[in-house]
Amino acid sequence: MKRRGRWWQWFGSFGWGASLLSLSSLLPCALAADDTPLPEQQVKAAYILNFTRYASWPPATLADPRAPLVVCVIGQDAGDIARRLQSRAAGSHPLELRTITRNEEGDACHALYIGASEKARQGALLARLRDQAILTIGDSTSFLADGGMINLMLVDGTIRFEVNLAAAKRSGMSLNPRVLALAERVLGGAAK
């Protein structure tokens, strides 16, 4: 992955490079202090962390300001991503990581990352979660079409993202407008 744009400070929240300056400084590809590309799973974990920080759930979902925010992951690379998110927090909410294997386990999540290896069953999982306040993040070409909210994708060697705003609204969630402005594409919302 190559260095692009002005976004890499976003990943400073992991201690990888510069400090987090502002959301407007996001970089779709993180670089280590010596400008070497970070592993793809590390970049994805950074995106997932920051999406949880800039998403809003309905008030009843996280009524206790110190309650854990449950982040579930499913797929072949899920364990690596979960390890990279250990001991992190989204605002005042410590992240509680869970690796799930069955669709039914997704009901107990606040955010769910569905790896590309789960493409065959992602449609059924997303249909099950359709009206629940669960931030869904994936990385397959059909993720948004299947009803997912945020899709990670590789563009010119750089990880970028696209958003299905209609899916987020349907579930009662919202995403910070600054995140939407950085998306490659926003479905069901205003154009960039």
Score class of each variant (00 low, 15 high):
139 D>P: 02
131 D>C: 03
108 A>W: 09
139 D>E: 15
14 F>G: 15
6 R>N: 13
103 N>Q: 14
158 T>W: 00
91 G>E: 03
24 S>D: 15
78 A>W: 00
165 L>E: 12
149 M>Y: 04
152 L>F: 02
172 G>P: 07
131 D>A: 11
42 Q>L: 14
189 G>K: 01
158 T>I: 10
62 L>T: 03
45 A>K: 00
170 R>E: 09
38 L>C: 14
121 R>Q: 13
88 R>V: 01
130 R>V: 00
4 R>P: 06
120 A>V: 12
175 L>P: 03
49 L>P: 03
86 Q>K: 12
27 L>M: 11
46 A>S: 15
97 L>T: 10
113 Y>I: 06
42 Q>K: 11
96 E>V: 02
177 P>H: 11
35 D>L: 13
159 I>Q: 08
156 D>T: 05
29 C>Q: 14
173 M>W: 06
78 A>P: 04
112 L>F: 08
121 R>P: 05
146 D>M: 08
22 S>T: 14
86 Q>L: 11
82 A>T: 13
135 L>T: 14
178 R>E: 15
157 G>Y: 03
108 A>C: 03
155 V>Q: 06
14 F>I: 04
157 G>E: 05
120 A>I: 10
14 F>M: 15
92 S>C: 02
138 G>H: 03
146 D>P: 03
145 A>T: 12
132 Q>I: 00
177 P>W: 08
123 G>C: 01
113 Y>P: 03
